Computed example of a mutant assay.
Amino acid sequence: MERKQCKFRKLTEEQVQEIREQYATRKWTHRDLAKKYDVSEKTIGKAVKGIVKPKPFYIL
């Protein structure tokens, strides 16, 4: 059976954790992180606040 990545969620758990850590250093803005991870600033804001749900690695 072929596995496909989920297209609805753009960030993995690892990426969300990285975003939170980077933002906490106060060296990164939402805009900088959005460009780095190729998502919207709104998505970064949700990740920082813990609202975004990380995507699963694969969906069967």
Rank of each mutant, 00 (worst) to 15 (best):
E13W: 03
V52L: 15
V16H: 04
Y37A: 10
G45K: 02
V48S: 02
D32Q: 13
W28E: 14
E13G: 08
D38T: 11
E21V: 05
Q22K: 13
R9G: 06
S40I: 08
E14C: 02
E21D: 11
K35C: 05
K49F: 03
R9M: 02
K53I: 14
K7I: 05
Y58E: 11
H30G: 09
V48W: 08
K36T: 08
I59H: 06
R31E: 14
K4I: 10
K7D: 09
E18N: 11
T43S: 13
G45L: 09
R31A: 15
I59S: 12
D38G: 00
Q22A: 07
R20E: 10
K35G: 09
K55H: 07
I44P: 03
I19H: 05
E21H: 00
P54A: 09
E18G: 02
K49S: 10
F57R: 07
I51W: 15
T43V: 09
K35S: 12
L11H: 00
L33M: 08
K46G: 14
V16N: 05
R9W: 03
K10W: 03
D38H: 14
E41D: 14
E13C: 02
K36S: 07
I59P: 02
W28H: 14
R31D: 15
E18Q: 13
I51G: 12
L11I: 04
W28K: 12
E21P: 00
Y37K: 01
S40R: 08
V48N: 00
K46Y: 11
R20W: 03
V39A: 08
C6V: 03
S40E: 04
K10N: 08
I59G: 09
V48C: 03
T29P: 11
Q15H: 00
D32C: 08
K53M: 15
K4G: 01
I51Q: 11
V52H: 14
Y23F: 14
R20N: 00
P54G: 06
G50L: 07
Y58T: 10
R3K: 11
L33I: 02
R3Y: 05
K42S: 12
K42C: 10
K49M: 07
M1C: 08
F8K: 00
T25D: 10
L33S: 11
K36D: 08
V48R: 06
E14W: 00
K4L: 08
E13I: 07
I44S: 06
T12N: 04
